[in-house]
């Protein structure tokens, strides 16, 4: 299954994959919180590259803007506004072992499922056409958003507004 020809996209995939996995592992294993956020930003950027490989340019831009930009900065703010004494974390060996076992066995299951699944050939394109076939990805997505997905889109804007107001009222210092 992996004996594909080595071409540009393939190399790019492995490079991005290496960046992402490395960033994720670093995120888990680093000591200082700020370093963790920075390694996480690397994961986000790598993912954006993956999106480009998958002909999803608009999603890639959104990924860079929102994740690598907004969410990371938000996390940095969160870190700055809270106190972190990472040094004296008491270890919880049982808990961490169990978590590792759980995560690993889940990965085992998923990997088994992926290897077992007989993935059929790509057929005819569905709604909006195949991502590779359209010339202007952003235009196509915009059209879809404002035609077929208008209701979820509007709902989402309401959700964002509510989250925005809620975040403000939560984080605001309580009136004396």
């Amino acid at each position: 299954m992996f004996n594909v020809e080595v071409n540009g996209p393939f190399v790019a995939f492995f490079v991005f994959a290496a960046i992402m996995i490395g960033g994720a592992v670093l995120m888990i294993s680093l000591e200082k919180v700020v370093h963790m956020v920075v390694s996480m930003a690397a994961v986000f950027l790598g993912l954006a590259g993956m999106y480009v490989l998958l002909d999803a340019e608009f999603a890639a831009f959104v990924q860079v803007l929102i994740y690598a930009g907004a969410v990371s900065i938000l996390m940095v703010f969160g870190i700055m506004m809270t106190k972190h004494n990472a040094a004296k974390e008491p270890v919880r060996p049982l808990h961490e072992t169990l978590a590792a076992v759980g995560a690993l066995s889940l990965f085992g299951l998923l990997f088994y499922a992926i290897r077992q699944t007989d993935i059929p050939e790509t057929g005819a394109a569905g709604a909006g056409g195949a991502p590779g076939a359209v010339t202007d990805n952003t235009l196509a997505i915009g059209e879809l958003l404002y035609t077929g997905y208008i209701v979820p889109f509007e709902l989402l804007s309401v959700l964002l507004t509510v989250a925005f107001i809620g975040a403000i009222s939560l984080a605001k210092k309580e009136a004396e």
Binding site: A56, G128, P131, V134
Partner: peptide, 13 residues
């Protein structure tokens, strides 16, 4: 969205 049985932009949306 790209490699599925029915490639479509819905996945990106």
């Amino acid at each position: 969205s790209k490699y599925g049985v029915v490639p479509s932009l819905t996945g990106q949306i």
